[in-house]
Design a protein around this nucleic acid. Structure first.
Lengths: 143, 143
DNA sequence: GTTTGACTTCGAGCACACTCTAAGCGGGAG
DNA sequence: CTCCCGCTTAGAGTGTGCTCGAAGTCAAAC
């Protein structure tokens, strides 16, 4: 029961990463232990797919390559460093939570700006009324 | 009642951007119309501060420089393109909302991984019990 | 048996967003 | 008057994360 090895092309298709990126990740120490066929071609296991899925989520939430590599090093080193892996993931999780909060607040501010424009345009829809002098005369720059 | 003009150093202090970055933004077309003293030195108005605050939020939510520049061009062009400004902001808002959703989902997945490690470590706190054979034997890679 | 095409490694190239340097000017302190 | 500091411009350099190209190998198709 070998777990159905995949070529780089199949993994690229399934993960959305390019072959170039998959090779780059491996070269850069982000992968755990990608197998090789007799020909030297890469063969990915289902476990590799799961790993790629995880590090893709880490990357998409803003973890730098070097930190993903650190995590991969810990996993490659084997049992005994679970506390450090946990600390790394927890620190990242907190950073992501903080960033989500910040971005949500900024989005609110942007939505206010959108409402400002939407109100102005909708209130002015009949072009014969509504002159441009309706603007708040003070805020002379932030449009 | 001139609105208290600020030097680049003061604006850097207040906004958290460096002087370099403030000059770079201006050179790159992201600013609206930064004034100059007789000496040629930049003088920022309160309105400029508000604009910087806005584009900082746009940048922090992932809007590329070139799109901020486009928005600035529209503002510089004056009245009559409010619909395009609105469309630009709305498109960005939707992208940000989508990204927040994605990141929240990824964060959930990362939190699950954290719980996996936290449970393992806490369950193993007395080092004499709890051998490493407790792991799920199947998931051989994604740690 | 040769062609085709996907794979390999290694190194260079690119986009983005700053970040810094060099050369020069100007204005207040001593 | 001279020093020094902070400003000016133009342009070069940096870090991150891919992205691509060249040269070569291998295996199945014709």
């Amino acid at each position: 029961m070998t777990p159905a090895e995949l070529t780089i092309a199949e993994v690229a298709e399934r993960t959305g990463l390019t072959r170039h990126t998959l090779r780059y990740y491996e070269r850069d120490g982000l992968m755990i232990g990608v197998g090789r066929a007799d020909s030297g071609h890469r063969r990915y296991s289902e476990g590799d797919l799961g790993w790629i899925d995880l590090i893709t989520k880490l990357r998409a939430t803003g973890m730098p390559i070097r930190e993903v590599r650190r995590y991969a090093e810990l996993v490659r080193a084997g049992d005994g460093n679970e506390d450090e892996r946990l600390a790394l993931l927890r620190a990242h999780g907190e950073r992501v939570r903080a960033q989500l909060d910040t971005m949500a607040a900024y989005l609110d501010a942007i939505d206010m700006k959108i409402r400002y424009y939407a109100d102005g345009i909708e209130a002015c829809e009949p072009p014969d009324s509504c002159l441009s002098s309706r603007r708040p005369a003070v805020a002379s720059v932030p449009r």
